[in-house]
Design a protein around this nucleic acid. Sequence first.
DNA 1: ACCGAAATTTAGATCGATCTAAATCTGTCG
DNA 2: CGACAGATTTAGATCGATCTAAATTTCGGT
Lengths: 339, 339
Amino acid sequence: MKSEARPVEEARNVTLKDVAQAAGVSRATVSLVLRRSPLVAPATRQHVEAMLAAVGYVYNRGAARLRTGTSGTIGLIVPEITNPFYAELTAGIDEILDRAGRLTFLANSNDRPDRQDRFIRRIREHGVDGIILCAAEGTPQSLPAQLKEWRLACVQVLRSIGDGADDFVAPDFAAGTLAAIDHLVAHGHRRIALMPSTRKTSAARERVGAFEAAMRGHGLEPGAIAPCVSSRIAAAEGIGRLLDGRDRPTAVVCHNDLMALGAIAELRRRGIAPGREVSIVGFDDIPEAADASPALSTVATAPLDVGREAARLLLRRIAAPDDPPERILIPPTLIVRDT
Amino acid sequence: MKSEARPVEEARNVTLKDVAQAAGVSRATVSLVLRRSPLVAPATRQHVEAMLAAVGYVYNRGAARLRTGTSGTIGLIVPEITNPFYAELTAGIDEILDRAGRLTFLANSNDRPDRQDRFIRRIREHGVDGIILCAAEGTPQSLPAQLKEWRLACVQVLRSIGDGADDFVAPDFAAGTLAAIDHLVAHGHRRIALMPSTRKTSAARERVGAFEAAMRGHGLEPGAIAPCVSSRIAAAEGIGRLLDGRDRPTAVVCHNDLMALGAIAELRRRGIAPGREVSIVGFDDIPEAADASPALSTVATAPLDVGREAARLLLRRIAAPDDPPERILIPPTLIVRDT
DNA sequence: ACCGAAATTTAGATCGATCTAAATCTGTCG
DNA sequence: CGACAGATTTAGATCGATCTAAATTTCGGT
């Protein structure tokens, strides 16, 4: 054997083999210990576990995935993480997946299908076990079928694309809209308008459908439907047009609280008392809603719960890929405040 | 050999080997094509690339990591994703890492060191190349050293723990506090109070230090320092105590906009005009700040930029682990509005 | 046609886990 | 004591990529 100065030892990873060596058993046995197999004798297990800790072993999940085909990770795609609604949703998902011992890849698609596609390709390379998707506007309807073909479990949230026969979790926007209309009608309103988002998503379409149905259900003609970009300023302009038009509405149901707050600001600018002369109802119940003055009446959509349910459903689907799809609608609550 | 009905063919993954077979070359060649090596002949490259697309090949990054030791992923730990500041920060980080072709594991620590530890263990198992950390309150000061020992690149954001000699990116809270005090003093205020967060983080300590220094710099006695939990309600109570005490301040600098808004609400409740009788300055410039009435004066801390810089620094550190650490402070902007 | 250098391509080992099938080690019982 | 069942343990192949070192091809120049 040649005697040569050994170069500075490159800090090699501690592997199963090292642990096995230290414990005086085979790699296979250590592997069994790691996976809590009942096969190993209690004494052996204890000894191996001690060694595991002693040598500072770190499990290499990538190597394991190579054999088992499962990575313990999932991907989450949201259109806009800075929107408080999605932030809450994310928190709910994170909570459940953390508890299940899984890790989450996060992507912010900015509602751009190209970013979304890129992200999907990348997480496939990483072998995610499933994906929670709030599809970017403009996503081809074929995506869910595509994912199924790739055998990638997928739960959609909030916005539904495809043939409607896939796993899906969302607040029940229709029920929320209905509750808002019922409440307004019960308080004497007859000319009610809807201000949905301009986004062409199922979340917007559903509100429009429910609005028309609810109004007809009360024997009323549906009032103006004024789609509007989701921002305070745009909503202020939007309600301005409604107020200037003929048949000025006495109540407006807005797509979300942000828009509702913008609308209220415009009412006050015009000297119209929100809640007295014109009622405004929002959606989401963001923290600011309760705190604003006047406090905003709104349909609370429990994003945390939506997130939790979506995560649970995904875990179920990963465990049983061939079970029939589920559609879970989280019932919202109408919160009546001052407006 | 027993003749038995073969079970439905398990859809095996398409691998390098399959592509090689289809293209009539060796696995090694396909691998070179994938990594855009200049070694392969242009004609071969084209042919292989065509096959790659034709058979629907998906790169297996886990397998690659086994040899290369690098995974192309990083971990992001924030204390509270539902806080708009962290949501923006996350968006900035996501933007840069996406561009760099990397994936982000997200964890919401809820400011609990145990969750944080669990997450760190998991992402180590997945072989992340680095981590962006906003340490949970109560994290041991030894964590950065520990990470270094594990050879895990780490950039801290917002809150700094350890010996202060590690990579760190944050808004310059001290400069922001100074700017706020300067502005208030220039407008005639003499009795100025500070309402920092009760969290024992560097972000809070820094504000306190800068506050005292700035006041002394103007030849003034620092006013009351009233630590307060970061919420609207708590801030309302907090400012209540300041107003009831002797030496009632004429201006209060709050830890963030949320608290500032809570304080303003309390002022109005007491019939005190914000901005006239008592001035309030917040931190962060959340969207609501500009929109509130009266509009909130605040120190804008550009979380998106902080996120981007942190991501860029991490990429640099991963590329050059032994370069000296950097501390990057993003200069904030004082935005003077009505309060 | 042949040589050597440069340009391409490839066989086979390797990363760190799991899996299969077989080996070894108990303890019990006739 | 020897056989046998049940309990443990293990050797060696394998997952899908990369890397090394060597083999093969191409090509200009004589």
